[in-house]
Design a protein around this nucleic acid. Structure first.
Lengths: 200, 200, 200, 200
DNA sequence: CTATAATCGAGACGGTACGTCACGTCTTTTC
DNA sequence: GAAAAGACGTGACGTACCGTCTCGATTATAG
């Protein structure tokens, strides 16, 4: 996500979509976000940096938010996939949350998620797309994770699945948003207190 | 925070700062944020709505973020002040968190906080001011609240004070940001599980 | 120079400079100057009148002075070209000066020259461009005219060519600037007295 | 007209008009015109430079043009008064024109006249005041001068008095406006050719 | 010997225009 | 057809002055 943008002019690809242009745009968007922040991320600056015409961007993406969503989706499944074990334990969930915390605070793509969550506060349309393409699918997988762990008797949360996930994820996101680190103890305590291994 | 902006031309106040203009700007900013969202909130639109010259805004505020901070600070102490009892109980803290949840999801000024938290993701300078003028002072009061409750033997949190507060506040903010409601059970469970009345 | 500005939205011309926009700007500038004077001639008003974006003006002209210079240059060669006869007579020169007087006092484009001469008193940069693009080229042609007439034995001015031209042109410009008419007798007397047909 | 503006704050003068403030304004206007040109001459810059409140300027002058007119009138009678001899000769007139030429090209106050003539092209109101307070009174005196010289048999101009004066003055003004010097020969030739000593 | 009244400096105010930036749309030309 | 190039109308940015308007301090004259 950061190879120096190809400056020698790429050859046109004729009448099919140009994969090189697509990647150049995604990389440029990510790089600019990390280097100069969302405020400096304009369609014109992406086009400039990617060596691509503005029209090429508008042909394939309806806004810079869609570009960032593409970046986010491509990256976040690699960095912290939702666990898929048949019988997940509280420990698996703890590891997942730690990966999420690491992603948010250390990975450039984590900045993308924070930027999109932020932008969703500013524009209803962004909120809608972010839910549809990212938050809702992930949440569905997370709910399934909790369901399998509960069914397996590994955890016994008091709250409904969504509320449980928000109680776990919320503090991580909030600390990332306010510029704090996320100490191990925080994740550990949340998992211990909220997922409550069943007393047998 | 929404009375129709005074349309009969205000009389100039001469040499001193014009309090009517100051209020008109704060109200206009708040109204526009609620009505059309942060994306449509421009200095020009605030000036138009407030019946005020752009220069008057720039004379007193360095950006629209500072205007919103003024709105937020003036309002949020009224709506959910940090409790000041000598010996606060877990119940007092629960009530405080519920007031916060109500503020975020129902009060126009709550939108202001979400918008500023969001904007802080986009601009480092916004993050700095938001911390300095709002988050840090409130957090200091909240830390003191936890310290008094702990000293009084009413609660016994496992985590450090800041982490405890983030664990309580994070889920509320996150649900507000993702457009969810905040059920009573969520706040109750967080308080019960994280503040742990001491076993005697 | 005054056809009502095309109000139905012009079609963009894409990649190349839009000639219709160029003409709309020149006409708008000229019309506004004549109708409301130089004081009311702002880039914004030109843009409004021409139905053109401000940026389009700034893309092609560095100031409203350059716009007026374009208007002046395009027009003044049509209205009173410097005579090009091989052997010009004093009468040819008199006719030329009368055309100039008519241009200054009756032609809208004449207002443009007066405005630019005026603006040149206010800004050194304007003075430089006005000389370079208008006054100097015209003066060169006028010097050549005098030279040919002198060589042909038609006139015998006492003064150097530049001073002669200024002595002829100065009174015309000055009367135009002070709002006076320019009587035939004035031009006739200047030509007679200053160009002195040679005694044979 | 250029003594360094009094920087130590002047004492108020109480009830009466403050002569020191009046002079500070006139000097500041003249200095700024000479140093930075008419374009940089704003009421605010004059007030700043003169150490005077804007309101003080607006109390006594209706515009910066009126300020400059005050400067011009105070100065130009000193530098090149219209000759008042009973029987003026062509030589007296030549000396007067040379003083005028020197005033325009060398004297700071000469810049003021050129600036006002220029501004008169931009605003009709300026043209009116300039005529009324400066050009017309001077021209009346000049007409009288020509009349006395003609009556005395010293000159015999072909043209009407106004046209004669414009024929003499026009070239001088025009050369000053176009940044040229005014050679002695030009003035001499104009006087000789246009005032025509009567043949006896 | 006080009031009173006009002047002064300061500067806030509602405006208009400045020149710049990015938006999203459009067209032309090249591959 | 897709792509690079870039002109176009739109509209917000933050700044400079405009001319008007209080203010509080200052000071000569009138009661």
């Amino acid at each position: 996500m950061s190879a120096a943008s190809s400056l020698p002019p790429r050859a046109h690809s004729g009448n099919r979509r140009d994969e090189a242009a697509r990647l150049a745009v995604l990389h440029a968007a990510d790089d600019l976000l990390v280097e100069h922040g969302f405020g400096a991320l304009t369609v014109e600056s992406i086009a400039r940096r990617a060596g691509v015409a503005k029209q090429t961007i508008y042909r394939w993406w309806s806004s810079k938010v869609e570009i960032l969503l593409d970046v986010l989706i491509e990256d976040s499944d690699k960095r912290f996939p939702v666990p898929t074990q048949e019988r997940p334990t509280a420990d698996d969930i703890r590891r997942y949350l730690r990966a999420f915390a690491r992603f948010l605070t250390r990975d450039p793509a984590g900045r993308v998620l924070l930027a999109l969550l932020a932008e969703a506060q500013h524009h209803a349309a962004t909120a809608a797309t972010l839910h549809e393409r990212y938050l809702d699918p992930r949440r569905a997988a997370e709910r399934a994770l909790l369901a399998r762990a509960t069914a397996a008797g590994e955890i016994a949360p008091d709250l409904a699945p969504d509320a449980t996930m928000d109680a776990l994820v919320g503090p991580i996101v909030y600390r990332a948003m306010t510029g704090s680190t996320i100490p191990r103890a925080l994740v550990d305590t949340l998992v211990t207190d909220l997922l409550k291994p069943p007393s047998h």
